[in-house]
C-alpha cells in the first residue's frame, strides 16, 4: 500500500490510527508534516477525538426532542445550547443546571449509562457550595448591571465578587 501525505501529498511514512469506541480513524503523514504536527510515539490522550465523538453524538440527537421557542441560554455566561453543540464545550458551571434536561441523555451515552458521581467530594463542600451559588448570583447581577449601563452598581458588584473569591 502506498499512501500519500494528507497534508502535502508526498509519500506518507507515518500512519496514525485512533480507535475510539470501536470507530477507527486513519491519518497518513510524511515525516516532516508529522513532526510539524508534533506527532510523536508518545502523544497525549486523544481528547480532541473523544470530544469529536461526543459532539457527533450530541448533534445527531433527534431534533424533535428540542422544544420550540427561545433557545436555552445560560443566564450567567450567555452560552447557548447550540454553541455547546458546535464546540463541545460548556461556558460555566451553571450550564450543567441550565442544560440539564438536554444534557443528561448525552451524558448518559458518553458515560456508559452513568449520570451520578460517586467519586471524591471536596472537603470544604458545604462552604464551597454556598459560596459558588453566591458568586454565580453576583455575576448574574453584574451582567445585567453592565447591560443596563449602571456602572456604579457594576463596580460595587465587581468588588464584592473579588472579595468573595479571595476569602
Amino acid at each position: 500500500m502506498n499512501f500519500k501525505c494528507d497534508k502535502c501529498g508526498q509519500p506518507a511514512t507515518i500512519h496514525l490510527t485512533e480507535i475510539v469506541g470501536g470507530n477507527k480513524n486513519e491519518k497518513h503523514l510524511c515525516e516532516d508534516c508529522a513532526a510539524e504536527d508534533g506527532i510523536t510515539v508518545k502523544s497525549n490522550v486523544p481528547i480532541s477525538q473523544l470530544l469529536e465523538d461526543f459532539v457527533l453524538q450530541t448533534t445527531s440527537a433527534p431534533q424533535q426532542e428540542q422544544p420550540a421557542g427561545p433557545e436555552l441560554t445560560c443566564e450567567v455566561c450567555g452560552t447557548t445550547f447550540s454553541e455547546f453543540q458546535d464546540t463541545g464545550l460548556l461556558g460555566c458551571p451553571n450550564d450543567y443546571d441550565t442544560f440539564a434536561e438536554a444534557l443528561e441523555p448525552l451524558l448518559e451515552k458518553a458515560q456508559d449509562g452513568h449520570v451520578q458521581h460517586v467519586g471524591k467530594v471536596p472537603h470544604n463542600i458545604g462552604r464551597s457550595q454556598k459560596r459558588q451559588t453566591e458568586i454565580l448570583r453576583l455575576r448574574t447581577e453584574l451582567k445585567s448591571a453592565v447591560t443596563a449601563e449602571d456602572y456604579e452598581r457594576a463596580a460595587e458588584l465587581r468588588d464584592q465578587i473579588k472579595e468573595m473569591e479571595q476569602s
Binding site: 490522550v45 481528547i47 473523544l50 470530544l51 465523538d53 461526543f54 463541545g88 464545550l89 460548556l90 458551571p93 450543567y96 443546571d97 444534557l103 448525552l106 451524558l107 458518553a110 458515560q111 452513568h114 449520570v115 451520578q116 458521581h117 467519586g119 471524591k120 467530594v121 471536596p122 472537603h123 470544604n124 463542600i125 462552604r127 464551597s128 457550595q129 459560596r131 459558588q132
Partner: peptide, 28 residues
C-alpha cells in the same frame, strides 16, 4: 490545591469540567 481554591462541584455530576466527557472524577 483544594486548600487554596474552591473547585466547581455538583452533587449529581461531581467535578464540573468544560467538556462533559471529563465530568465527575475529572480523571483520565
Amino acid at each position: 490545591m483544594e486548600r487554596c481554591f474552591d473547585f466547581a462541584f455538583h452533587s449529581r455530576y461531581g467535578y464540573l469540567t468544560a467538556c462533559p466527557t471529563n465530568v465527575g472524577t475529572g480523571l483520565r
